[in-house]
Design a protein around this nucleic acid. Structure first.
Lengths: 223, 223
DNA sequence: GACATTAGTTGCCAGAAGTGACTAATTCGG
DNA sequence: CCGAATTAGTCACTTCTGGCAACTAATGTC
């Protein structure tokens, strides 16, 4: 958003940064310079010679939450709905930031739980919804849930992250059995006591080589 | 591709039309007006006020293979690699056409089996690969395989389509059992005799209401 | 009519996933 | 110090799914 008064850019790159805050998914919004309580997705026009993904990464730097643990294109939006830039098309990038990392630059940027997202410019509302769908859909192919967690975590935290992303409860024993046979995590020798109850062992993400998992098709998920 | 000498468009819409030809996936290419044996993906600049998807549908009309059975955005590509339009960004739309529909407009458009795709403009090669990945990835969520088949088909044809898209063999009995419990097809009272062997019953795609299929997570597919 | 060929079904088994009950380790309140 | 409450972690049982081979069924070829 370096210079919003520049001439109409060829396109804009919109950033949907997600993290987990207090058991909720949250998205990073930027305070609009016009109007005090107007918010929008962070965006910018690409610089010349810059790839789209490079633009997206540059925008994350501006926001001040370090390198996101994962980033992926999440569609292009180009209908007539209004966008802060005057561009005809916006390319969305979804990024994940581990929970509990440093807070963004004061005043301008802030995390909003998804339930409390204020009104956005019309095209950006669509963009946000689409990006969340992309992230949720990626869960099976990419270790998305781990990217939202700090390097060390308890299995209960991991399960809660999956439940958050899937929007449904999982059974503890089944979850752990699946986790075990997938060789995705490695126990550390640290334990964390969370007030009352037995302390939980901390694990880290450490995918091991595994058999190619020759599994069947899933006709049961079709519309 | 209405007027390639117009001034630089804000963006271009690239179309990746896929069908099945002789047991192979095939993509629709357009003959480039410059150079006799140069081919490219069909594309055009959007008309003013037209949504991106509307542009994509309009391009399919130009090609002459009727309305595709399915269409979906398949990413935006904007690196420095060359594109026939001079635009900074191309939005890709993947579309599926049922096999055996009418042939495209003579001379200008033609189906190319994926194995025989000629050299494409650099950005379009990426676009094509990405679109195929999108279609393959959609198989579990969307009845993609059915969209590549005519309205009535044998179960063997359906299975072969799945095998084609998945790139692996499936077991006949398992495939049919899964199909049955998914309530996706309905038998007709027609049969087709394909030379020797027992005739096959024809089915049509007819998804029935089903239980929400409360299934577990799939940690086993993670990278 | 014997045989090859393709379609379609059945039964069995191994592995995966759903579930509740169990044990283990800690805090808290007396 | 002891027991209830709380959270972590495991186990055993059941159900479901998918892979597999063998079977029946209907057609064409010789």
């Amino acid at each position: 958003m370096s210079d919003r008064r520049a001439r109409k850019p060829p396109y804009s790159v919109d950033l949907i940064l997600l993290t987990a805050v207090g058991g909720q998914l949250a998205v990073m919004l930027a305070r609009s310079s016009e109007g005090r309580e107007k918010w929008m997705l962070p965006w910018d026009a690409p610089r010349s010679g810059e790839t789209m993904e490079a633009s997206a990464l540059r925008i994350t730097k501006t926001v001040g939450v370090g390198e996101p643990a994962w980033i992926e294109q999440a569609g292009a939006y180009g209908d007539a709905k209004r966008h802060p830039s005057d561009s005809d098309v916006s390319v969305a990038y979804a990024g994940l930031v581990a929970m509990g990392t440093q807070s963004p630059v004061g005043g301008v940027y802030a995390w909003f739980p998804l339930a409390d997202v204020p009104q956005l410019p019309p095209r950006q509302k669509q963009t946000l919804d689409g990006a969340i769908a992309v992230v949720r859909g990626r869960m099976d192919q990419s270790p998305v849930a781990f990217k939202l967690l700090p390097p060390m975590f308890t299995l209960t935290e991991l399960q809660q992250m999956y439940e958050l992303l899937l929007g449904k409860r999982l059974h503890k024993a089944s979850f752990r059995r699946a986790l075990q046979s997938a060789w995705l995590v490695e126990p550390t020798d640290e334990w964390r006591s969370e007030g009352r109850g037995r302390p939980a062992q901390l694990f880290r993400y450490s995918p091991r080589k595994r058999r190619p998992a020759q599994r069947g098709i899933r006709l049961d998920l079709l519309n």
